[in-house]
Amino acid sequence: MDYALPRRVAFLLFAIVVVTWGLNWAVTKVIVHSVFPLWATAIRTAIATAALFVVQLARGQLIIPRRGDWPVIAAIALLHMVAFSALVAFGLKFTPVGRSIVLGYTTPLWVVPGAALFLGEPITRPRLVGTALGLLGLAAMFNPFAFDWSNREAVVGSGLILLAALSWAANILYVRAHKWVSTPFQLTFWQTLLAAVVLAILAALVDGAPQINWSPALAGAFFYAGVFGTALAYWAMAMVNRSLPAATTSLGILATPVVGVVTSTLALGEAVDISLLLAMVLILAGIAIGTIPAKRGSAGQDKQALVATIARP
């Protein structure tokens, strides 16, 4: 059974998770330069599945899913762990990490109109303002002075990341509508297991048998992405969400793109221009204004959605 952590410990663990996920984008960029994106995602997910099995078994959280659990297992596995992760991996082959992570974190902006259309949630003034700011951020990122529209790879890469964000948004919408039987963390092992199987089948069909030139650096990158960037981070985030208010975690997770951009600049030598910085500020401000729970009654639902979907790399 998981218990709430002391506040100081919870904040420290939360900071570690944010840094870990921010670094994970740069690590994934390194991996997809050596391994086909589908195989890269499949191997990372398989490593995470094995690590989650050990973590959940050790903590007594490994369960057999009930009938009501399987729809959300399938939704998260297919929409987020397969579609989002694979599209991001493909997109990172053509798009810098900084741009990719900012585009990937536009997801909550697409949730606002989706929730109004499919879930009947009202578009409040804060949500409208937040969405408008986010769209201004996208306009800043794709203006002709900052983005080369004649570069086909750049256009395709950015389009794949945006499509990934839409897949993530569809996943969040389903999670909001789902009636939970087991807890989100208890189902994570089964989600990664299903995703690993589907990804391995897709990779085999599209790319054939994996042909990987293993090196210590590549093995270390896979180990980090699977164990620290996925499995242990999921457990840590579940603990953090039991210990800190939903608004705190919702705001704090917005530091992840900042860490990703800084990491890509320092470790990969990627340039950060004014348009990217402006876009990041506008998009993250829009998310903060439009998606942070304002009412006590909605905090519980938002916290479960955060555990299940939003707080992932």
Rank of each mutant, 00 (worst) to 15 (best):
M1R: 03
P6T: 05
V9E: 05
L12F: 14
F14I: 02
V17A: 14
V18Q: 02
V19N: 00
V19P: 00
L23C: 11
N24M: 12
W25F: 15
A26L: 13
V30K: 08
V32L: 13
S34V: 08
V35N: 05
V35Q: 06
V35S: 08
A40L: 13
R44F: 12
A50V: 15
L52I: 04
L52S: 03
V55W: 06
R59P: 00
R59H: 12
I64W: 12
R66W: 05
W70S: 03
I73K: 00
A74Q: 02
A74I: 10
A75L: 10
A75D: 01
A75G: 00
A77S: 13
A86W: 07
A86H: 06
V88R: 06
V88P: 05
G91L: 14
L92P: 07
T95P: 12
S100W: 09
I101V: 15
L103E: 07
G104A: 15
G104P: 03
T107Q: 15
V112H: 03
A115N: 04
L119H: 03
L119C: 08
T124H: 08
T124V: 09
L128C: 08
L135A: 12
L138R: 03
L138F: 07
F145R: 09
F145L: 15
A146N: 05
W149C: 11
W149E: 03
V155N: 04
L160T: 02
L166D: 00
W168A: 10
W168V: 05
I172A: 14
V175S: 07
R176H: 13
R176K: 15
K179Q: 14
S182F: 07
L187W: 03
L187C: 03
T188D: 01
T188V: 13
W190D: 05
T192F: 15
A200N: 00
A200H: 03
I201D: 01
I201Q: 00
A203C: 08
L205K: 05
G208Q: 10
A209C: 07
A209M: 13
W214F: 15
W214C: 13
S215P: 09
A221D: 09
F223P: 01
F223K: 01
G226H: 10
F228T: 01
G229F: 11
L232T: 09
M237W: 08
M239P: 01
S243K: 07
P245I: 08
L251A: 08
A255H: 01
G260E: 07
T263L: 11
E270V: 11
E270P: 10
A271I: 08
I274K: 06
S275F: 13
S275P: 09
L277Q: 02
A279H: 08
M280K: 04
A294L: 14
K295Y: 11
S298C: 07
V307K: 05
P313N: 13
P313M: 14
